[in-house]
């Protein structure tokens, strides 16, 4: 099992408030790790620290078993909570731009744009400006931008928020498919029914990881009917 991403003793304070305290996690290749927690629990901060977009006060992050470097970002697919798209541009132009920033050559880009547009069902809307997109379409385009360069590791912050159940289904099917292609995914969510689709979940509350494990194991260990109950119980290890 190859460790793709790991965080050791990550601690982050903002003024007096502790946002993350001593968080440890590691992701093996080919797994979907669900980061679960109520809003304000520090999920986004954790993802940003793992990406190197925010500094932690203590602890260290290793990306593909080394210190994060510019060249290792080549294998990262990041999708933020905000859609992070250029609204004046068409969907095609957005994909084209992020594709070239990721180092794809022109021919390759063209081909990949077609492929990812197909995957997120936006093929017929590629020439529309993002301004004219609905919220759900923007979300899917944002995901497509993270997919364009076939990364090995995905960090997806609430990828399915605002999508209808049908689309959510198809997106989770896509995650399964990425996983089969040996990709590693870390997905934050606060939707409980998505938890069961993850290989492992980490429960984050008040900046601490309450528990980690496969959904089935967690239910067994804590003797609860649903993962939510672990939060309600507020148990620690």
């Amino acid at each position: 099992m190859i460790i793709q991403l790991s965080g050791h003793h990550l601690t982050k304070k903002f003024k007096q408030q502790t946002i993350l305290s001593d968080v440890n996690l590691s992701l093996a290749s080919g797994e979907i790790y669900g980061l679960l927690g109520p809003s304000g629990s520090g999920k986004t901060t954790l993802v940003k620290i793992l990406l190197g977009l925010e500094k932690c006060d203590q602890g260290k992050v290793e990306l593909f078993n080394q210190k994060p470097s510019i060249s290792s970002f080549r294998h990262l697919g990041y999708m933020a909570q905000s859609d992070a798209l250029y609204e004046e541009l068409t969907a095609y132009e957005n994909l084209d731009f992020f594709g070239s920033i990721q180092g794809l050559r022109k021919k390759e880009r063209k081909q990949r744009i077609e492929e990812v547009a197909e995957i997120v069902h936006l093929r017929n809307d590629l020439s529309k400006k993002v301004l004219q997109y609905s919220g759900g379409m923007k979300r899917r385009l944002s995901l497509a931008c993270a997919l364009i360069h076939k990364p090995k590791l995905y960090l997806l912050d609430e990828p399915t928020v605002g999508l209808d159940p049908l689309l959510r289904q198809s997106i989770w099917k896509l995650f399964q498919k990425l996983k089969e292609d040996e990709a590693t995914l870390i997905v934050t969510t606060h939707v409980m029914d998505e938890v069961n689709r993850c290989d492992r979940v980490g429960l984050l509350k008040d900046g601490k990881i309450l528990a980690t494990g496969s959904p089935a194991d967690l239910l067994k260990t804590y003797q609860v009917d649903s993962i939510e109950d672990i939060f309600l119980k507020g148990v620690s290890h």
């Binding site: 060249s71 970002f73 080549r74 990262l76 990041y78 933020a80 798209l85 920033i101 931008c145």
Partner: peptide, 14 residues
């Protein structure tokens, strides 16, 4: 503010 800088920062651009 739109988050596109984050996306750039998470990609191999200097």
């Amino acid at each position: 503010t739109t988050g596109t800088l984050d996306r750039l920062m998470a990609s191999p651009i200097k």
